[in-house]
Every structure is written in structure tokens, then in C-alpha cells.
Write a protein that binds this DNA or RNA. Structure first.
Lengths: 212, 212
DNA sequence: CTTGATTTTGAGAATTACTTTCATTTGATG
DNA sequence: CATCAAATGAAAGTAATTCTCAAAATCAAG
């Protein structure tokens, strides 16, 4: 809800404490504390075995507060603030650039950002995506939201109808590919170079393009 | 668990009562009763508002039994027996056929079958997919299983490694497209012709193909 | 058709995610 | 400091899901 007013810094995300009121900073701290506690507990106990009560205790807040910040347990682990980042990157792409290329750029840049800022979180999240079906499922939902957002932006840029089937399919295919690549990467223990995998994926997408 | 021994008839699925023991037939009847009761209740009360207890009562079984048949509430609504059907259709495709064409055929034929055998269920399910996020999420998971199954078959046919990234991406893209098209279809109140939508989707996928 | 083995079912208790409500605390502000 | 609005915690409630165990149904032999 309050996410809109924070212009996201492409560099460091959850550290963005500049110019926030005491209240806001406290909220941010709580949010981070909950997430940290969760990742810690999950790492030692596993996802299912970690109850919200434990998380609350570890983060030194009440269970109600946890639910206030993250309505669904899975959200704690997969809510990321990268949607607006991706949106920004996409908006900065030249209008004439082929759509596939724009999306590739967005994906690569976002991943690069995540790997730079919070690599551990990216690994942890990917691991969860591979291991916990409910998280994987929810992640797909998240990505489908991302997909809609990007489609919206591309619609503006190309003057298409954002609801147009073809555009939706195009974007969701690319995002779906990102999902698959990430899972593949995680399944094989992060041994491959993520960006090489993305390159291979792009080859498969080949000259997928929107025609008129 | 017992699903493997039933060679699925391409014509009528849940009616396949031939040569089953009393026990098996009874189980099948229970399964169908639960599903029917669920769809009925959902139609009048909505998905979230329908509790498993109500379902159990309506189907005249105990809640435990419901959970024994469908471990997760969502399963009642989205478990379908079409995976083996799709697999069979795919296996019958000529080895030389382009993969995309094979998959298109599988999709079109399966949908045709569903529309013929249980159109109401297809509509109901699609409606749920559009309206209930948790179902949509789970449906994606289901489709990803389907996707793996089909990839496996295609791997055998083409002599590829079933775990190969490119193959996985290819199949999951096509299945993901089916998902999107179905949602699109449902969002617009089933006004479009489903098969025309699929044709349009195939145009977007264009000459997506696996190269070596 | 009776008996004993096997399967399926139902009853009930326990866990846990999630919701809702309300009183209390805390930061923002004049 | 006094006041208002937002944030928190406490507590009770709902519903999904799991587990356990005993009763009932089916099956396979004799």
C-alpha cells in the first residue's frame, strides 16, 4: 500500500532509509526483522516446520503483527520490491527497441541487481522455489503480476491495447521463461552461470516477436 | 496412486466403470459425488465460503473421507484426469512432426475432448481460475507437472535428454501459453471461440522451434 | 455363506494458518 | 503537553489439514 510513494533506488533497496519518518523507519525495520528471522528459521528448521508464532517470537513482534505485514506466510519469503525496479528499467528502454530485447535487458539487469544487493536472499528464495510447491505456485502468481505490469508499460510504448491477447502472451512467455530458468538453475545447485542460462533461454525464444 | 492401471479412454473419462471391482466402482462414485457436491456448492456459495465440512455433508461422506480423496481442497476442483490423455495423444503423433505442431495438436484435441465430455466442468474450472488466486496458482503447478510429462515423452521421441533446459523451456512455454489463453478466454466471459484464441496464440509462438 | 484378512470409512482431537476485534501504545503535530 | 491517527498486542474464532484408532464394508477362501 505504501509501496508506491517510495521511489525505488536501483542500487540498494531495503536499505533505502533516507528521508523517512521515525514511524516509517520503524516499520521498515520491523519488516526486515521479520524477513530475516524467517530466513534464519527456515534455514535451520525448514519452511513448513517454521510456524508464524516462531517467526513472531524470533522477530520480537506479535503474531498479529507478522500477519499485518505479510498477510500470507509465503509472502514473507517471496514479496520482493523488484516489480517497480523492473518497471523503471523497462520504461528507460528506447521506444524503438524490439520488445524481446527490452524484456531481456530488464531481466538481466534486475537479476544483476539482486545478485549484487542480496545474493543470499536470491539463493534462499530460489531454493525455496525448488523445494516448496506452495511457494513455487505463489511465485508464479507473483510473476504473473509482474507480467501484467510490464505488459502495461509495453502497451503504452507501442500504442497497443494492454489487454490484447498477443501482447499478454508475449510478455508472459518471457516471464515464464525466466521462472523456468531460475528453477532449473536452482535444481542444479546454482552450478551453472545464471546469465549463460538466460542466454540459452533467449536462443529458444529466438525471434519470437509481435507482428501486426 | 491407482490411476495408472486405468487405461484412459479418450472418449468418456469419469464414466469408465468397465471391469472395476465393487470397491473400485464405489470409490469412483464417491470421488465423483464429492466433486459434484463441490461444484454445486461453489456455484451457489462461492469457493472460499464453501467449507470442506459442507462438501462432506453434501456428498454424504465424512470430512476425513474428503481429505482422503483430495488432500487439498483445491484438488477437488482442479485435479483432472487429462494428463494421461494428453500423454497418449502426444505419443500417437508421428515422430517426424515438428514439436510445436505436436503440442498444438495435443492441446486442441484435449480441449475438444473436455468440451465434448464435460463442458460445464471446463467452464466452472476456468471461472475459478480467473476468480480465485489460490486456484490459479495451484493450476499453474498442475500445468507444470503436465509440462514435465510431455517433455519426458518428447525427449524419448527425439532422443534428447528430458532434463535439457531447451526442451523444458519449449514445452513449458507452450503449456504456459495454454494457461494464458484459457484465462483470457474466461476473463472475457467465454465470448470468444476458444480455438480461434489458440490459433492466435500459435501465431505468436510463430516458428518457435528447438534447434540443435 | 461364514470367516478372516484387507481396505475403506468415520469420529474426534490436535495443529496451524489466517481473521477479526478491541484496548493500548506510540509517533506526529499544533 | 494534549490530541489525533497509526501501529501493536492480546485474545478469541474459523477452517484447512493431519493423525489416530475403532467400526464397517469388501474381498478371498474354504
Amino acid at each position: 500500500m505504501t509501496r508506491m510513494d517510495v521511489t525505488p533506488n536501483l542500487r540498494c533497496l531495503s536499505e533505502n532509509r533516507a528521508g523517512l519518518s521515525l514511524r516509517e523507519r520503524k516499520k521498515l525495520r520491523t519488516r526486515i526483522a521479520i524477513r530475516r528471522a524467517t530466513y534464519r528459521l527456515i534455514a535451520s528448521e525448514g519452511y513448513e516446520a517454521t510456524t508464524v508464532e516462531q517467526i513472531a517470537e524470533a522477530a520480537e513482534v506479535s503474531p498479529s503483527t507478522v500477519f499485518r505485514y505479510f498477510p500470507v506466510k509465503e509472502d514473507i519469503v517471496l514479496t520482493d520490491e523488484y516489480d517497480p525496479v523492473m518497471a523503471d528499467i523497462l520504461r528507460q528502454r528506447p521506444a524503438g527497441e524490439p520488445i524481446l530485447e527490452s524484456l531481456r535487458f530488464v531481466i538481466v539487469e534486475s537479476l544483476r541487481g539482486m545478485l549484487r544487493d542480496q545474493p543470499e536472499e536470491l539463493y534462499a528464495r530460489t531454493r525455496l522455489m525448488v523445494e516448496v510447491p506452495s511457494i513455487r505456485a505463489r511465485m508464479s502468481e507473483t510473476m504473473s503480476t509482474t507480467s501484467q505490469l510490464l505488459a502495461q508499460i509495453l502497451a503504452e510504448r507501442t500504442g497497443r491495447d494492454p489487454a490484447e491477447l498477443e501482447l499478454r502472451l508475449f510478455v508472459s512467455t518471457v516471464i515464464g521463461t525466466l521462472r523456468e530458468v531460475t528453477i532449473y538453475w536452482g535444481e542444479r545447485g546454482f552450478e551453472d552461470d545464471l546469465f549463460s542460462l538466460i542466454d540459452r533461454a533467449m536462443v529458444v525464444l529466438g525471434d519470437l516477436d509481435l507482428r501486426d
